[in-house]
Write a protein that binds this DNA or RNA. Structure first.
Lengths: 116, 116
DNA sequence: CCACAATGATACGGAGCCGAAACGTTCACG
DNA sequence: CGTGAACGTTTCGGCTCCGTATCATTGTGG
């Protein structure tokens, strides 16, 4: 069965999680970076710069730069495609999976504490 | 009864909403700005710069600048407190309420479309 | 072969946000 | 009064991100 929420619950959840992120995180990701990261980890591979740019409706440099930043954080990895060496395949990392796992935990915890 | 979610649902929801925000919104708010806006609209007034800074665990200039930006968008308003003219009371606006109402709709819609 | 398309990365100027520090105004109180 | 504290704002230099345009590399088709 689908997940049903009231408007109060929806905004309350967004509020609680955003607040938690702002309070705790020193280096928080941009909304775009977060969307890219979630896309990489929740949608079946392969992921390419071009594909992500099309999916998110942004330009390619946005993806390249986001991958630079998140790559430096160890959240994602890049590998050249040997079948077509123009492509770059974006790979998941343990650190990235752990990062999103923690995010999921926060969402679940805040949802549970929501007033009815 | 509290809102119960699986890890897959939690991340899937965050993914869907983030994606929706990135795709649609030309001028998207920072995570901090979003947290401030939600705090203003979901927590009973009055709201002050100092109070918001303490709640979000950020410095005062962060709040001032966020209010500048969101004020220019019409999402919030500022009024001097006549009881203590050092204070600035942050006021809600119709545009701000509408903005968050739409956000809530997106969250609810995406939650309903989530795979089980 | 060779011109052309496709892919991702880079250069560049511009804009926004950041933290730390200093500032102007307003209040409290001796 | 007048000294100091409280509050919000502004200033400053620095960093990151942005969009456009351009680039190097690699594949494709005549």
């Amino acid at each position: 069965m689908p997940l049903e929420m009231t408007p109060s619950q929806a905004l309350g959840l967004w509020h609680a999680v955003s607040l938690s992120q702002v309070r705790s995180e020193a280096h928080d990701l941009t909304l775009r970076q977060m969307a890219i990261l979630l896309q990489i980890y929740l949608v079946p591979p392969p992921h390419t710069v071009r594909g992500l740019a099309a999916t998110l409706n942004v330009t390619k440099p946005v993806i390249t730069r986001a991958l630079d930043t998140m790559g430096a954080m160890g959240l994602v990895d890049r590998v050249r495609d040997d079948k077509d060496r123009r492509n770059v395949i974006i790979k998941r990392t343990v650190a990235g999976a752990l990062y999103l796992e923690k995010l999921g935990d926060v969402v679940i915890a805040e949802a549970r504490q929501l007033p009815y």
